[in-house]
């Protein structure tokens, strides 16, 4: 399967408008051939709706705030589409990263390599 057949939803869980991180990641994923759908700052309902309507193959969350906000969205997505993989990046301190990993979410904190993030996208969507 080609990357171009896969769609990745990207959303920011918080209301903080810094955009450096997610746009760099989106560009790397697009350069690797993925179709990236960015919905910006999104609450749980926005994320779940987009994950279903856009029929995406992977969800990428940019987390800049409290981990419980992200966890609420993750759990809802997992209820509605149990097999849909999720990965996350952003300002995620170690204790929060452990909470996400326990939910099966891969975590890419600041300093992660783009190549590793693209690799993860390929692995999680089954192109690799």
């Amino acid at each position: 399967m080609e990357n171009s057949q896969n769609r990745i939803l990207m959303a920011k869980t918080g209301l903080d408008g810094h955009w450096r991180g997610p746009t760099i990641v989106a560009r790397a994923l697009r350069d690797a051939g993925f179709e990236v759908i960015m919905i910006g700052m999104a609450n749980t309902d926005d994320i779940v709706t987009a994950a279903v309507d856009e029929d995406v193959d992977l969800v990428g969350l940019n987390i800049g705030g409290h981990i419980d906000v992200a966890i609420r969205s993750i759990k809802r997505v997992q209820e509605v589409r149990p097999s849909l993989p999720i990965f996350a990046g952003g300002t995620i301190p170690p204790h929060a990263a452990k909470q996400l990993q326990a939910l099966g979410v891969e975590v890419y904190p600041p300093g992660s390599q783009l190549a590793d993030i693209v690799d993860a996208a390929e692995r999680l969507t089954g192109t690799k």
């Binding site: 869980t13 918080g14 209301l15 903080d16 609450n43 309902d45 705030g65 409290h66 906000v69």
Partner: peptide, 26 residues
Amino acid sequence: DRNTADHCYNVNHPEVVARCEDVGLT
């Protein structure tokens, strides 16, 4: 707090309520 200040929302705004744990974080 960025959630409320940057958007000029009170804490009862639905977008803030949806992220209530973020309130006061910054």
